[in-house]
C-alpha cells in the first residue's frame, strides 16, 4: 500500500535523514520514534508533499507518487503540531470548511451526522458552535483529530496526536484508530509516549538509526 525507499531529507542544505526505508500495508500502523530534533516532523512533512526529499521514492499502491501525486494526496489526511484551526470560525465551520476543500463531494446531512458522532465520541459536542479561540488546548487537539477522522482518507499521517489529550480521550482515539485499521486504512504517527493499548500491533521506525 505505502512504501518509502532510500529517502534522503535535507534541511538548510544539511542532510538530516539518510536512506530511510519502510513498507506499510493495509490495516497496519507505524510509530515513528527518535530523539528531539532528529527530524520526525520534517520526515512526516516530506511524506505529505510539504517538503521535497533530496532523493528517494515514495510508492502509493505500487506507483511512484511522482507520477501520480494527485491520487496519493487525495488519499492522505495529515495532522501536524499546529491544530490548523481558524480561530474566528466555530468548530462546525472549521471542520465543514476543511471537509469541503479536501473531499470531492459534500453531503450536508451526512456530514452533520458524522460530525455529531465524532464530536460526541471526543466529548466536545457542546463546543460545536463555539469559536476556536474559546477552546482549551486539549479541545483544539480534539477538533484537529476530528478533522482527520472525518476525512474518509486511507492513510492518516499524525504528528504527535496524543499531545494534550486526557486518558479517556486517548482511549477514544485508539478505538477510532482500530476502527480505521479494520476498514483497511493505515496510520503513521509520531509519539514519545508508549502507554498504548495492548491489543494493537504497532510497527516501530526509529529515526535515530537514519541520522
Amino acid at each position: 500500500m505505502f512504501e518509502v525507499k532510500n529517502l534522503y531529507i535535507d534541511i538548510s542544505d544539511k542532510t538530516i535523514l539518510k536512506n530511510v526505508c519502510f513498507v506499510l500495508n493495509k490495516a497496519q500502523i507505524l510509530q515513528i520514534t527518535g530523539q528531539n530534533g532528529i527530524g520526525k516532523t520534517s520526515f512526516l512533512k516530506s511524506l505529505v508533499n510539504l517538503l521535497n526529499p533530496v532523493s528517494g521514492n515514495i510508492y502509493w499502491n505500487g506507483v511512484d507518487i511522482k507520477s501520480n501525486k494527485l491520487d496519493y494526496i487525495n488519499n492522505i489526511s495529515y495532522l501536524s503540531h499546529k491544530n490548523y484551526l481558524n480561530e474566528s470560525l466555530t468548530v462546525q465551520e472549521n471542520l465543514e470548511y476543511f471537509y469541503k476543500l479536501f473531499n470531492s463531494s459534500f453531503n450536508k446531512k451526512e456530514f452533520d451526522l458524522n460530525l455529531k458522532s465524532i464530536l460526541s465520541k471526543l466529548n466536545i459536542l457542546n463546543k460545536r458552535y463555539s469559536q476556536a479561540f474559546k477552546l482549551s488546548q486539549g479541545q483544539k487537539q480534539k477538533v484537529a483529530l476530528a478533522r482527520v477522522f472525518l476525512s474518509n482518507k486511507k492513510l492518516w499521517i499524525l504528528d504527535e496526536p496524543l499531545v494534550a489529550l486526557d486518558t479517556k480521550s486517548k482511549e477514544v482515539f485508539w478505538d477510532i484508530i482500530k476502527s480505521h485499521l479494520s476498514n483497511n486504512g493505515a496510520v503513521i504517527f509520531t509519539s514519545h509516549q508508549n502507554d498504548f493499548i495492548d491489543n494493537l500491533d504497532i510497527q516501530k521506525l526509529n529515526l535515530d538509526e537514519f541520522a
Binding site: 495529515y78 499546529k82 490548523y84 481558524n86
Partner: peptide, 18 residues
C-alpha cells in the same frame, strides 16, 4: 499572517488545487 500563524496555510499547500 493569520493563516500562516494558525498553520492553516500549511494544510492548503499539501494539495495543489486547494
Amino acid at each position: 499572517s493569520q493563516d500562516y500563524n494558525s498553520g492553516v496555510l500549511e494544510l492548503f499547500l499539501i494539495n495543489k488545487s486547494v
